[in-house]
Nucleic acid binder design. Structure first.
Lengths: 121, 121
DNA sequence: ACGTTGCTTTGATGGATGTCAACCTAGACG
DNA sequence: CGTCTAGGTTGACATCCATCAAAGCAACGT
């Protein structure tokens, strides 16, 4: 009976069985929804892909920003959203800031959405 | 150079390689982001899990609504959001309406988030 | 010290979103 | 036909969000 939820830390969330396999507890839903929300924007989804697929596993903001027709502050805002969702990490090295994907959370989300191969699409 | 995107149908999206494996085109990002967005709410994430994990693969609204401390219209609104995102299907049978998960899109999202097992969490 | 470049933060604004009350529609049953 | 129940739709409201211009901060070069 998942009435309402109190937020819990992502660290306490056990790496979840698939959504379709057993009922997702309200607290886990509350903890994981922000990550999906962060991916729910085309710009952030592309940023995530650019970062995760970048050679060396990291991408400089200076390479990310010019790929869009958006202002610098807007890209910075989206990157902050991804950071706060726990999907990426940022590190400053000298003049530039590098972003790197955090595969742990991505794996949790992928696991949640896993569907048994039996049923048709 | 993924500048801007024009929306394309989900049907045209080839079942995607992982985000981290190759650059996600802008059009695909624009097509798939709404699905992540729909999952980016704790209530909808729980609804999705209740529907997908229900016995027989389908759940009646009459069973979903009382599981939350939310009004009927609000649950109906969230279900509409999931429907418009392509994540669930609705079917009326007599008095009741039954919702069923659409595993195709879920598989696409899961595939996108798949991470090679090499790197640590 | 000074100016330049890279990125983030702040403030403002228009548009989207979650929620509920009120109303409406579709079936079932007399 | 009338009425009851299950859901969806509409309208209203408060909040959140994407975006940009302007200002701020950090590192490098001179």
């Amino acid at each position: 009976m998942p009435k309402q939820a109190e937020p819990i830390s992502l660290l306490e969330v056990p790496c979840c069985p698939p959504l379709a396999q057993q009922q997702l507890p309200a607290e886990v839903a509350t903890a994981l929804a922000p990550a999906f929300k962060a991916l729910g924007d085309p710009v952030r989804l592309q940023l995530m892909s650019m970062i995760a697929s970048a050679p060396g596993g990291e991408a400089c903001v200076c390479d990310l920003t010019p790929a869009f027709t958006l202002s610098g502050p807007t890209i910075s805002h989206h990157l902050k959203t991804l950071r706060e969702a726990g999907l990426v990490d940022a590190e400053r090295r000298g003049t530039w800031v590098y972003y790197r994907a955090r595969p742990g959370l991505m794996r949790q989300l992928a696991g949640l959405l896993t569907v048994s191969p039996a049923e048709a699409g």
